[in-house]
Design a protein around this nucleic acid. Structure first.
Lengths: 137, 137
DNA sequence: CCTTGAGTCTGTAGTTGCTACAGACCCTAG
DNA sequence: CTAGGGTCTGTAGCAACTACAGACTCAAGG
């Protein structure tokens, strides 16, 4: 039984260090029900183990990919229920992908306008400015 | 003197209607100092005119282009001070353009990962899912 | 003249996803 | 036994709005 590593008990700061997550954010995820309420020591300190590390990493990766808290909660609910199917998860993911693509399109439109307008600027020390005119027109 | 149009006095709802701005947002812009405190009727109702319409349109256009409130406040300060130069405005704009481009790059990276992962899904009624594996790994 | 309904006023709370305190504990090393 | 760190809780703050409640005002209809 050399596998006592998975039984390692961590405090909040250690969990934060291992995952790169902010200390307070862990408590926030707990409050919002994404992280389970961890067991406590007699004096009330939270005690984490490897399952918490995995779960937090899951959440953080999903956040990095731009999933909203609500979307992540859905994914986790599927996983927690053990009822998830590839079809359901794929649907969530593709919905999110569509959102991301829409945001990219939006930003590209904005980029074009900004670039075109800024390109007209003389960049000189005069009060007339094409950007302001574009905004005021 | 047929130019009494510019003296037209509007209520908040009419200003909102003309600009497409939400009613409450107008008050918000006033509270945050972007819109000037408008004159009031004896009973306290706000009274707007064409200058307010222009100013609000300026703000809304800048927001559409993704400028933050803080950035817009800077632009407005320049305009209000009458001290703006094309160089200053251009600099602000290019800073913002750089931010927008960074966001686009971020989202494209995310898009790639999402698309690649979702493409591996069978989409079937099975619990194994490449998306979940990618998040849990 | 009075009522009714719509507009307006204010302050405040909610949203999302955290982050950062204050003030009270607790725990360990010297 | 004290000093310093950690941890606990609740709460407030950020952006940029949005939405209410409860009080007031105003114009039109009966």
């Amino acid at each position: 039984m050399a596998n006592h590593v998975s039984g390692k008990r961590l405090q909040r700061a250690e969990l934060a260090r291992r995952t790169g997550c902010n200390l307070e954010t862990i408590r926030y995820y707990e409050k919002t029900g994404m992280m389970p309420d961890p067991p406590r020591t007699a004096s009330g300190y939270r005690v984490y183990d490897d399952t918490h590390v995995s779960r937090l990493r899951f959440i953080l990766r999903a956040r990095e990919l731009g999933f909203s808290i609500e979307q992540i909660r859905c994914l986790l609910d599927l996983v927690d229920g053990g009822t998830q199917t590839c079809a359901e998860v794929k649907e969530q993911t593709e919905q999110h992908l569509a959102d991301v693509r829409a945001k990219i399109a939006d930003l590209k439109r904005i980029e074009k306008v900004l670039a075109a307008t800024a390109a007209q600027c003389s960049g000189e020390d005069v009060p007339e400015c094409p950007v302001l005119e574009a905004l005021a027109s």
